[in-house]
């Protein structure tokens, strides 16, 4: 339950409100994790929030986080300068079930900051590309300036290993790409529905629509995985905040199959 002390070694601005931060813990070393897991990040005297691990799962010396400043703690994280320290404990939660996607087409659908917990999964699938059949990433952002990981995107777009489709809600004059919901891009990527797995992370409304469309096209509900977001205070099943019906999402989530979630996701304010 006690955090470890991590020092910020590098920081880059992704968008006006989002930063990617690289931390290290010289004393205890690496943080091993499974793609999709999260850490509880503590800012001295301010508070503690769940943040997904966004780094390469094979380079665990660095703890890489992408944080969007929306409130007290996340803004304090975004305001850190290299050399400054935070507390971090974890990793917590279920990861993306890469084993369940093995031998299948894999579609990754994300919106906004939701791409952060998927970045390690993309890196991982590309590192063992032969385990999967067709691989595609559909990524939506509010505007072109809100796109995260622009360097990664350039690399992935130029690779034959993954089909990358990007869309924005509102375009600017320099934007040549797609405009509209991520679901509009589904028909564009190649997948054989009965043998497809999907990893989805983004705003809950978006995940709902994506899961509905994918399953309507014949992707089995048990192959569609969503990462849900709930208030989390402890990450160890004590505080009760992260409950989603029978799940404590900090322990038995945040990633679960749509098969398991569908019924509860139909209930308002659950």
């Amino acid at each position: 339950m006690l955090p470890r002390s991590f020092r910020l070694t590098a920081k880059s601005q992704e968008t006006p409100d989002t930063f990617t931060l690289v931390f290290e813990d010289p004393e205890h070393g690496e943080v091993r994790f499974r793609p999709g897991q999260f850490m509880m990040i503590y800012v001295f005297g301010v508070g503690e929030v769940p943040i997904s691990i966004a780094g390469n799962p094979h380079k665990t010396h660095d703890l890489i986080l992408t944080v969007r400043g929306v409130g007290a703690v996340t803004n304090a994280i975004c305001a850190l300068d290299p050399g400054m320290v935070v507390g971090a404990r974890g990793p917590y939660g279920s990861g993306w079930p890469l084993a369940a996607a093995k031998g299948r087409d894999l579609i990754i659908v994300t919106g906004g900051i939701g791409i952060a917990p998927l970045r390690p999964a993309i890196i991982e699938t590309l590192s063992r590309r032969d385990d999967f059949r067709d691989l595609s990433l559909i990524y939506g952002a509010r505007t072109p300036t809100d796109l995260l990981y622009k360097d990664d995107l350039l690399g992935w777009e130029s690779s034959a290993d993954i089909d990358v489709e990007v869309t924005v809600d509102r375009a600017s004059s320099e934007w040549w790409g797609d405009v509209g919901l991520v679901t509009r891009l589904l028909p564009r990527v190649r997948f054989n529905p009965p043998n497809t797995a999907a990893f989805v992370c983004g705003p809950e409304v978006m995940m709902r629509v994506v899961a509905r469309d994918l399953t309507a096209r014949g992707v089995p509900t048990q192959n569609v995985y969503l990462s849900l977001e709930r208030n989390m205070k402890c990450a160890v099943g004590f505080c009760g905040h992260c409950q989603f019906g029978r799940d404590f999402l900090c322990r038995t989530g945040p990633i679960r199959s749509f098969h398991d979630l569908a019924e509860r996701m139909r209930v308002d304010e659950i």
């Binding site: 503590y42 005297g45 503690e48 205070k233 505080c239 009760g240 905040h241």
Partner: peptide, 25 residues
Amino acid sequence: CFCSTTEDRVTLDGEALRSRRWDSC
């Protein structure tokens, strides 16, 4: 009922304290 929340504060001599407080759904 066991639900709780956390509180963080900094004392005058620069120490940060974290505590748990009962919370309610």
